[in-house]
């Protein structure tokens, strides 16, 4: 079967799986942003913890994704949420690290002025630190998202659905059109995410 006729005949399935993939990524990223930014902020207040936390995140990233997802099965079983948790673990490092460095790299004079004028720590965090670190945090989120779109394909293996289904089914059936369709859709999603988030990043910059 020729590639285009495959795409034509499975149009509705491609659309459904792409949406599913998108939902998986969005769910994982939404959670990862909340967790990652909170952890990243917290460790700016305690340096020894910062090094430990960043180290753990780094180790998590070195675990092969197939193994990581496989290891989650005994804990969480098979399904969408297992995929989500796996993706969260992978996206933590860029988000936590960028939140941490984004805040740490703020000119200390700015923070001293804020403190000296009587702003309390909560206001300083919300009105000064986070807005100033936002471009760096956004860059971390972009890196994480693009990465997770790719890893998301592997999450189909634990039953999380998404475009990985094309790839895994294609492999087991020796169907290269199926694999190609899955791969192209994943790439397109990743590029789209990258472009959109680059735009957001530019908007977040205060200069």
């Amino acid at each position: 079967m020729d590639f285009w006729s495959f795409v034509n005949s499975r149009w509705d399935k491609i659309f459904a799986l792409t949406i599913e993939h998108g939902v998986l990524i969005l769910t994982a990223m939404a959670a990862a942003i909340v967790v990652g930014v909170v952890v990243g902020v917290l460790i700016t207040y305690y340096n020894p913890a910062a090094h430990a936390v960043l180290y753990i995140c780094q180790i998590l990233m070195t675990v092969p994704s197939l193994a990581m997802l496989g290891l989650l099965i005994p804990l969480l079983g098979i399904g969408f949420w297992t995929g989500v948790v796996g993706l969260i673990l992978y996206s933590l490092l860029p988000i936590v690290r960028n939140t941490y460095t984004g805040i740490r790299e703020i000119d200390p004079a700015i923070l001293e002025a804020a403190r000296g004028m009587g702003m309390n720590e909560r206001t300083i965090l919300l009105k000064i630190k986070l807005p100033l670190a936002l471009p760096v945090i956004m860059a971390g989120i972009r890196t994480a998202t693009v990465m997770v779109v790719g890893i998301g394909a592997i999450a189909s293996y634990v039953g999380a659905g998404g475009l990985g289904e094309f790839i895994f089914r294609g492999i087991s059936r020796y169907n290269k059109d199926m694999i190609l369709t899955g791969a192209i859709c994943v790439s397109v999603l990743a590029i789209a995410a990258d472009l959109i988030l680059k735009l957001v990043e530019k908007k977040a910059s205060f200069r």
Binding site: D107, A109, I110, L111, E112, A113, A114, G116, I128, L132, F206, R207
Partner: peptide, 8 residues
């Protein structure tokens, strides 16, 4: 302060 520390 000398560095002024305006919020950029």
């Amino acid at each position: 302060i000398q560095e002024i520390g305006l919020f950029p």
